[in-house]
């Protein structure tokens, strides 16, 4: 009865943050994923907004609680507070704006500073519908993602291209990491519970697979 109201009907709750420069389309990515909406007239985000969507991964219901942060410098103090306890992050850049891509470095550093150590990170090149205004070649971005062990997808919130896939890939990666982590803990608990657990997740194979998908014009 009340479980409905509070949405208890899920197996896992993942907190995911959306970060990236102002105007790269974070809010529209979120609204596309959670409500399948797109707004040309969207205003710049103040502070943070958040939305949830429950998806199923490997038979488990996973509730993704996605925090959409403001990209503007002036809200930086507010937004970094929201990195805590996030298990996943999407760094978004605008493929037509080189500066937003260059700033990914900065966002990654900030994320590592403020978030948990083994947070799963995805790199997203948004606005792929503006291919004719592209400033960031796909290959370079993919190489960069590979080097930093990030998932990589090019999306278009306007056309809804790859938006679902990008979020799904991240959530799946988090889920796999967590289930693997739990197994590790179970193994370790018998012998020495204090064993240093530093599961380094290698996400490198994912970007290639992802890209194969991204070229699909699927919806």
């Amino acid at each position: 009865m009340q479980g409905e109201d509070y949405g208890y009907d899920y197996d896992f709750l993942f907190k995911i943050v959306l970060i990236g420069d102002s105007g790269v389309g974070k809010s529209n990515l979120l609204s596309r994923f959670t409500a399948n909406e797109f707004n040309l007239d969207s205003k710049t985000t103040i502070g943070v907004e958040f939305a949830t969507r429950t998806i199923e991964v490997e038979g488990k219901k996973i509730k993704a609680q996605i925090w959409d942060t403001a990209g503007q410098e002036r809200y930086r103090a507010i937004t970094t507070a929201y990195y805590r306890a996030a298990v996943g992050a999407l760094i978004v850049y605008d493929i037509t704006k080189s500066s937003s891509y260059e700033n990914c470095n900065h966002w990654l550093a900030e994320l590592k500073q403020n978030a948990d150590e083994n947070v799963a990170v995805g790199l997203i090149g948004n606005k792929s519908d503006l291919d004719h205004k592209r400033a960031v070649p796909t290959d370079e971005a993919r190489n960069y993602a590979q080097e930093n062990q990030l998932l990589f997808t090019e999306t278009s919130a306007l056309n809804a291209d790859n938006v679902d896939e990008a979020f799904r890939a991240l959530i799946t990666a988090i889920y796999q990491m967590i289930s693997k982590n739990q197994l590790d803990l179970n193994d370790a608990s018998g012998n020495n519970a204090n064993a240093p657990k530093g599961p380094t997740i290698s996400l490198t194979p994912a970007p290639n697979e992802k890209h194969k998908k991204s070229t699909n014009n699927c919806c």
Partner: peptide
């Protein structure tokens, strides 16, 4: 929309 225009390298931008 079957065209793309991009810099040879992103550094050009």
């Amino acid at each position: 929309g079957l065209v793309s225009i991009e810099p040879i390298s992103g550094i050009n931008e």
